[in-house]
Amino acid sequence: MSLMVKQDTLTTDSLAQIAASLDMGPLQEPEAVSFTFDTIGWPILGGLVLLGIVVLMVLQVRAYHKNRYRREALSELENVVNGKRPLFYSFVLLKRTAMHAYGRNKVGEMYGKSWYEFLDKKAQGVSFAALQERIDRLIYQDELPEEQVKTAIITNTKKWIKDHVSR
């Protein structure tokens, strides 16, 4: 091991001696590279960044306007939660929201099991089909469900309005 260290030291020392014996003169440094914004690339990059910002803003405004019906339905659902509207009104909101999102021709004629299955398919994590019997009694017999079922209906309605996939 010590033999290798000595060998490397000898090689390094001999190279240092050879370099020292050569007269190469002073070290020549290159000129400093100037950094200015005068080149054509900077205005192009600035324009592209600005264009990207404008496009993102336009997309955000369009998404905001497109989802206006959701915000309105959620604010009306608060009237059901606060007791200003009856519980069955949440299904009026669901139907109206679904007609806005999927069209009157597709949604308008749906009822019963097919309606609840449609709602379950169009949003993740909702389960109206499981509550079908209690919902039907609420709508058709004006029978108020237990508090737990009422909470499940309102929670599912809110989640569906927020999370349904349009078209």
Rank of each mutant, 00 (worst) to 15 (best):
L93T: 03
E117P: 01
K162H: 01
T155W: 08
V55T: 08
S21E: 10
K162I: 05
E109H: 10
V61S: 07
T36P: 00
E146L: 08
S90R: 02
H65Y: 12
I154C: 00
T155E: 08
R62A: 15
L87C: 07
S2R: 12
L74C: 04
K6T: 09
E29V: 14
D142K: 06
D8P: 00
V5A: 14
I161D: 01
M4C: 07
E78D: 06
V58F: 02
V107S: 05
L51G: 11
G125K: 08
T11M: 07
R96H: 03
A98L: 08
L51Q: 02
L27K: 13
W115G: 02
K122N: 13
E146N: 09
L56R: 01
G103Q: 03
E146W: 01
A152T: 06
T151E: 07
E109V: 09
E78S: 05
N79V: 00
R104V: 10
F35W: 08
G47M: 06
W42I: 15
S90D: 01
H100N: 12
L56K: 00
Y102V: 07
E109D: 11
A101T: 02
L22S: 07
R70E: 01
V92E: 02
T11V: 11
D142Y: 05
V81L: 04
T97I: 01
V58C: 02
S127I: 00
I40E: 10
G46F: 08
V92S: 09
V61C: 07
G103L: 06
L94E: 04
E117S: 14
R137C: 08
K6G: 07
M4W: 14
A63K: 15
K84A: 09
V107H: 01
Y69G: 06
S14T: 11
A129S: 14
S14G: 00
G52K: 03
T36N: 14
S34D: 09
D8F: 13
K66Y: 10
G108C: 06
L45H: 03
K66F: 13
M4R: 12
R62Y: 12
V54C: 03
S75M: 09
E72R: 11
N67R: 09
V55A: 14
A16R: 10
Y64V: 03
D23M: 08
T11L: 13
V54L: 11
D13S: 14
H65T: 07
K106H: 10
L3P: 00
V55S: 02
K150R: 15
K66L: 13
V5N: 11
K162W: 02
W42V: 15
S34Y: 00
E76D: 11
S14R: 10
S75Y: 04
D142L: 13
N156Q: 05
N105V: 10
T97E: 04
L131P: 03
V81W: 01
K6I: 12
F118Y: 14
D38Y: 09
A152C: 00
D8Y: 12
S75I: 05
D23T: 11
L138F: 05
T9P: 01
W115K: 04
D13I: 14
W115H: 05
L48M: 15
D120P: 01
E146K: 11
V61G: 02
P86Y: 03
E31Y: 02
I44A: 11
G83D: 01
E31H: 04
W42F: 13
M110R: 07
A129Q: 09
D136S: 14
A123S: 13
D136Q: 13
K95I: 00
V61P: 02
A32Y: 04
Y102A: 08
E29R: 13
A152E: 12
F37V: 09
